[in-house]
Design a protein around this nucleic acid. Sequence first.
DNA 1: AACTTCCTCCGCCTTGAGACTGAGCATGTT
DNA 2: AACATGCTCAGTCTCAAGGCGGAGGAAGTT
Lengths: 221, 221
Amino acid sequence: MSMSTIMKIMIVDDHDMVRLGLSTYLSLESGIEVIAEATNGREALEVLEGLKVNNLPFPDLILMDLMMPEMDGIATTQEAIIRYPDMKIIILTSFLEDDKVMEGIQAGAVSYVLKSVSSEELVYAINGAFRGMPVMNTEVSQALSRGIRQMSASKDDNGLTVREREVLMLIAEGKANKEIAEELFISIKTVKTHVSNLLMKLDVEDRTQLAIYVHRKGWAG
Amino acid sequence: MSMSTIMKIMIVDDHDMVRLGLSTYLSLESGIEVIAEATNGREALEVLEGLKVNNLPFPDLILMDLMMPEMDGIATTQEAIIRYPDMKIIILTSFLEDDKVMEGIQAGAVSYVLKSVSSEELVYAINGAFRGMPVMNTEVSQALSRGIRQMSASKDDNGLTVREREVLMLIAEGKANKEIAEELFISIKTVKTHVSNLLMKLDVEDRTQLAIYVHRKGWAG
DNA sequence: AACTTCCTCCGCCTTGAGACTGAGCATGTT
DNA sequence: AACATGCTCAGTCTCAAGGCGGAGGAAGTT
């Protein structure tokens, strides 16, 4: 793989050992040079700004972790793409969550790669991203298509109204109808109406299953 | 740090890049040699057995990830410690969960280290473990003491019996009492008794909160 | 003006959930 | 033998949950 230019890469990950391992390994690859690192999103933006104003070598591509303290990968990607539009970003994460894949791509990442890929695949993805040819695992692309299908199939979410979503969240916190009524300043009757609508719309049988639904979706802490 | 002997290490992690990064980095450390790798627990045990029967160099210490396909770090640690009692195991994980720390230590791991530690700290932990001096992050030791406090406060876990835990899990799947009764071949009355006991023991008000409890604990998929 | 959607609320009714009390049986412990 | 624990089941009772049908007002759409 003879590329005339050297790819300058930045690694953003809160795990010291992932960062160190990646940079150690990637530095051995010909054509790749790790020129910057950061442990979270905020730091990454600061580092980038520092490189910019001091006219130092600027990364062509960022390997960005999703879950980080201070500022996560999605938000950082969004911000970074706005500030430096010609910089590529590959989101690198441990988990496959359909929603996150969508968000990541929407935020402007060219690629979304699971940490479980082999190191060869990662290098391949980096090379691809550098040339504007996004590469992603088959699992990721499947997740993406699932996400798109869900999106087009069910409008924006599930067709839940604002009020219904509020009630749903309170149910997911274990609140009883009476408590929900007091919290939302409405009558128990109204709460029951919303609950019935939720049961119908989400196609489940009782409030316990509603709570489980929310937690499975990862909407709750 | 001049040690006469070289520490032979095995790395067990399903993430190619963690494994590769770690081994690349640790190999640069004097006194540490990475002699084996595996991508999950089952594979790790197979590799160890292979080394044993062929009289090949055997690891003094394993860096073991917690969350892995096939067989997780806890189960693998338990099994490995039984088969090779003089081998040390350091559990290496992304997450801090009080329960898991307890389980890990109980399983026989000498140390429990977060992946967020710096690489120097990791080397320090490895050296410590090698000499029988367990090292762990302050966060981890805090989690451990929390776990112990809970333990002494509330018997062993929550004091749940086998049957109660079965009922709890079915509730967390959204099953009604009747369904649970049929699934466990007991009467609804008995299910109700178990549910009442669960509500009392876990100090919550209804089955929905039981389901939420389980999901928050991460006991459900 | 007609229509739809959302939020609100009512009464009536059935059923499931859960509390309380009490009890039989098997196991293992002291 | 006495005791504790876990699993089982029963009856009774209260109340929250949820279905069903109806309805009014606010807001935006066609």
